[in-house]
């Protein structure tokens, strides 16, 4: 009985504490300017969409969204395009010293952004990648590769070796074996890696802040972090922008919760 009560309290706390703070932001985004400025704050919004409109129109939000979609989308594609063959080679092919290669690749995920920020900035400056979306792509792909490779390699490892041997007897070389037999079978892992990579790139702030300096090129996190009004802090617009920035992630989590959980716990790497 106590166990049931404890569980009930646990569920309530988990759900309540997880959702409530953000719900407050959602509530705020649906208020009017007057309601936001009320002291003490009001609990219920009037359901106005004014802040959404002004966030989209007056605060570059459409640019931010477009940039985030472009950057996160292409990071995902590139990281998987590069990560799949690398993970396959590391998991399944004979290669002297691959233990060290894997170790080196995985250790990248531990790097503090600051440790590589200066030189990365200099490289991008030299090749004209500053304040461009493709310039941001380069560190993003690098930093998401360990996660993608880890998830994919763990999965490739579990696939039966016989299948690969059958493919080789059937006449496949290493590339064909990978593309025609192993990759289709690894679809769940690829999907998981894709979701986590996308979320990482969508949320990343540090490099986006360094590399993108013009509002037209900035991504959502930068836009939201540097959100400013003319005289006062535009909390309502900020809340609206935050809800918009978070919505795709909430949808991903609701739809693909299972994949995300398996990716995070099997891969055990933070996205």
């Amino acid at each position: 009985m106590t166990r049931r009560i404890l569980l009930g309290v646990g569920i309530l706390l988990t759900v309540g504490l997880s959702l409530f703070p953000f719900l407050w932001f959602v509530v705020t985004s649906l208020k009017t300017q007057k309601e936001v400025e009320a002291i003490p704050p009001t609990w219920w919004p009037s359901g106005s969409l004014d802040f959404y409109q002004s966030a989209l129109v007056d605060h570059h939000l459409t640019d931010y969204i477009l940039n985030s979609v472009l950057v996160a989308g292409s990071t995902t594609l590139l990281a998987l395009g590069i990560g799949i063959p690398a993970a396959y080679a590391l998991a399944r092919l004979r290669l002297p010293g691959k233990v060290w290669i894997l170790g080196a690749l995985l250790s990248i995920s531990m790097f503090p952004q600051l440790a590589i920020a200066g030189p990365v900035w200099q490289i991008l400056e030299r090749i004209g990648g500053l304040n461009t979306r493709w310039g941001l792509l380069l560190p993003y792909v690098t930093l998401t590769l360990p996660l993608a490779i880890w998830i994919l390699a763990s999965f490739f490892k579990e696939l039966p070796a016989e299948l690969e041997e059958a493919a080789r007897v059937d006449g496949c070389g290493p590339w064909q074996t990978m593309i025609r037999v192993m990759v289709p079978l690894a679809a769940p892992a690829i999907f998981t890696a894709a979701i986590l990579t996308f979320i990482y790139a969508w949320n990343e702030f540090f490099f986006a802040l360094l590399i993108l300096t013009q509002p037209e090129r900035q991504t959502l996190p930068v836009g939201i972090a540097l959100f400013q009004g003319e005289f006062t802090m535009p909390w309502g617009e900020l809340a609206a922008a935050s809800v918009i920035a978070t919505l795709p992630l909430v949808i991903l989590v609701v739809l693909f919760q299972r994949w995300i959980v398996s990716g995070l716990s099997a891969g055990a790497v933070k996205g």
Binding site: P85, A86, A89, L93, L105, F111, V120, L138, W175, M178
Partner: peptide, 17 residues
């Protein structure tokens, strides 16, 4: 083949990390 599969990942890692 393994080296070619690894090459892009290694290149990114070397240059940007």
């Amino acid at each position: 083949a393994a080296w070619w599969m690894l090459a892009p990942a290694l290149a990114f890692t070397l240059v940007f990390a």
